[in-house]
């Protein structure tokens, strides 16, 4: 659906995006993740033909962005960062304007999109008087009005309160069942909550590109397992654990009731069967054995060097 081949964009001496390549299949919800200033917005702006890449090619659907910018724009719905909308218009007129430019004649479509985005009750209000959340939804309505195949959202939930964030996420999930969506964010739970796939970019280059699941569990290689037992002291447990093949580190969790330890393995194989045999062989009581999900946050921090910018 979307193919990006080696695009680079410079602003003066600063390279905002440096030779990125990725492709997105139809129906995927992809999260573009990265610290502030990593080049997320620049990438999205190039996809929507707002900016022109200095080199590289972008193909969207059947169209090349350079040759057919108008066709590309007509199959894309775009919500720019912080949803810039005309403040001195009322919502209804604004949507009418977008509909007219996009050659949508049916006035019912405006009502429909208003209901979908939950802005029916503010249709007659000046956009400048709306709260951030409503303005974001007006931006979303604008992006969805022509029922685009591809939806590009730049930080769709920034500046919203927790309830609104959940609403918008649900809306994205709902829309994402039928459409290809790319959204950028620097909020990790957002990606975990909405995206099938994550592309992490840092300082203009892609540092990770995988499914959300894989990034959460596998990609670092190391796995961490929490074990809680009774019937032995921590030192005895720790000694036995260190003897298992593949164990790199054992830490005491200082649980008040049970003896618990966090075991880090090198990820070469699953150590859980051996662990279980060892514990049952000693007649200890196993209360819990959990493989920790490697949270995206840690992946992100590892890959983007602390994420500080």
């Amino acid at each position: 659906m979307i193919t990006v081949q080696g695009i680079t964009k410079k602003f003066g001496d600063i390279t905002a995006v440096n030779n990125i390549t990725f492709s997105i299949r139809e129906g995927e919800i992809t999260g573009l993740l990265g610290p502030n200033g990593a080049g997320k917005t620049t990438t999205l702006r190039m996809l929507t033909c707002f900016l022109k890449p200095d080199s590289g090619t972008i193909t969207i659907g059947r169209y090349n962005v350079d040759d057919n910018p108008v066709e590309v724009r007509s199959i894309i719905g775009y919500l720019p960062e912080s949803a810039p909308v005309y403040g001195d218009m009322i919502v209804y007129d604004y949507l009418c304007f977008i509909a007219a430019v996009r050659r949508i004649d049916d006035p019912r479509r405006i009502k429909e999109i208003g209901d979908l985005c939950g802005i029916s009750e503010v249709m007659h209000m000046d956009i400048s008087q709306l709260s951030k959340g409503y303005r974001q939804r007006v931006g979303l309505a604008q992006a969805l009005i022509h029922d685009p195949d591809i939806l590009i959202l730049d930080e769709p939930t920034s500046g919203l309160d927790p309830n609104q964030i959940i609403e918008i996420r649900n809306l994205i999930r709902e829309i994402g069942k039928k459409k290809t969506i790319i959204l950028s964010t620097h909020i990790l739970p957002e990606v975990e909550a909405t995206c099938d796939r994550v592309i992490i970019i840092d300082r203009g280059t892609i540092v990770a590109d995988d499914s959300t699941e894989n990034l959460q569990t596998e990609s670092g290689g190391r796995k961490r397992i929490i074990v809680k037992i009774a019937g032995a002291g921590y030192t005895a447990l720790a000694d036995e654990l260190r003897n298992l093949a593949g164990v790199v580190k054992v830490e005491d969790l200082h649980d008040s009731e049970l003896v618990s330890a966090r075991v880090t393995s090198d990820g070469g194989g699953d150590i859980r069967p051996e662990l279980f045999k060892m514990i049952s062989g000693r007649n200890w009581v196993l209360y819990e054995m959990v493989q920790e999900q490697r949270s995206l946050e840690r992946v992100f921090r590892d890959l983007t060097g602390g994420g500080a910018q």
Partner: peptide, 13 residues
């Protein structure tokens, strides 16, 4: 105000 981004990404030359 940044609305140029919405305007210039509409399918209009």
């Amino acid at each position: 105000s940044g609305t140029i981004e919405t305007l210039m990404t509409l399918p209009v030359t």
